[in-house]
């Protein structure tokens, strides 16, 4: 399989985040990782990026075990993390530096900035852009190194509702145009169903995969589509149990400490 996780576990100091994660992801698929906060979605994504190592098991991309970050995997974080001292264009060409001529770099930047509709702002500095625009630059920057996989960790989580919807549509277009494999972390059920070919639901305490839904609905997806509503309710039911578990544990914790 293209992106393969075999029996992956992560433990920070004494705290086990998850264990026994097995997951196979096909090329050109849009896969969402959905789960309550704290279940280890970001940790798993960071491991695919190579920012964190696996305590147990292994992750491989195209048959090669992932040991460190590399330009075959682009990542977009919840915070755009653009470099404020560089122009929009120079941010986008940052991962390319040294490898290509100035002209080729400019062409690549122009191509991806056009894709995210920011051609006009190539000479601007990040602080001159809105949050949504900054996140689009971050997407263009990740795409510029032409990765095989695009990793996105709640990329629209900090944006307002309206901007989020616009960016959903843009991301869908980019997905169809570039044919990237996308691994998308979110805690929003609607977002996962709206965008993905497949939704992986994670549970917590201990972190694990509890369900794996193919989303067999024609794009673009409408919220009032009956299959969408059905899926939403199914996943909601699943997650309710998980969220209750977290709440109960936190309440127990509190009663233990304050009574």
């Amino acid at each position: 399989m293209f992106l393969q996780m075999n029996n992956v576990a992560k433990t920070f100091a004494q705290h086990e985040v998850f264990s026994g994660i097995d997951l196979s992801i096909q090329e050109n698929q849009f896969v969402s990782l959905l789960g309550p906060s704290g279940c280890g979605k970001s940790t798993l994504l960071s491991m695919v990026a190579g920012l964190e190592s696996a305590t147990e098991g292994s992750i491989s991309l195209g048959g090669k075990t992932i040991l460190e970050p590399g330009t075959d995997r682009g990542m977009v974080f919840q915070q755009p993390a653009l470099f404020p001292w560089l122009t929009v264009r120079d941010n986008v060409t940052f991962p390319l530096k040294d490898k290509l001529s100035k002209k080729e770099q400019d062409q690549i930047a122009a191509h991806y900035l056009k894709m995210v509709h920011l051609t006009r702002f190539k000479e601007a500095y990040p602080h001159e852009l809105s949050g949504g625009m900054q996140q689009r630059v971050a997407i263009a920057r990740a795409l510029a190194m032409d990765p095989k996989v695009l990793l996105m960790d709640e990329p629209f989580g900090a944006l307002d509702e309206q901007t989020r919807h616009i960016l959903h549509d843009e991301l869908m277009k980019i997905f169809q145009e570039t044919k990237k494999t996308i691994l998308f972390v979110t805690h929003s059920i609607q977002e996962a169903i709206k965008l993905s070919d497949r939704v992986i639901v994670m549970g917590t305490r201990p972190g694990r995969i509890i369900a794996d839904f193919p989303v067999d609905v024609e794009r673009p997806r409408q919220r009032d589509n009956s299959r969408v509503i059905e899926l939403e309710q199914e996943i909601m039911e699943l997650l309710k149990g998980e969220i209750n578990k977290v709440l109960k544990e936190e309440l127990d914790h509190e009663t233990k400490h304050f009574t």
Partner: peptide
């Protein structure tokens, strides 16, 4: 900001280049 370092690392930047460029 640690997110700058993380972002740079995902773009294959490390070592001296990470220090001087980021």
């Amino acid at each position: 900001p640690p997110e700058f370092i993380k972002a740079a690392r995902t773009m294959g930047t490390k070592g001296m280049r990470l220090f001087f460029k980021v």
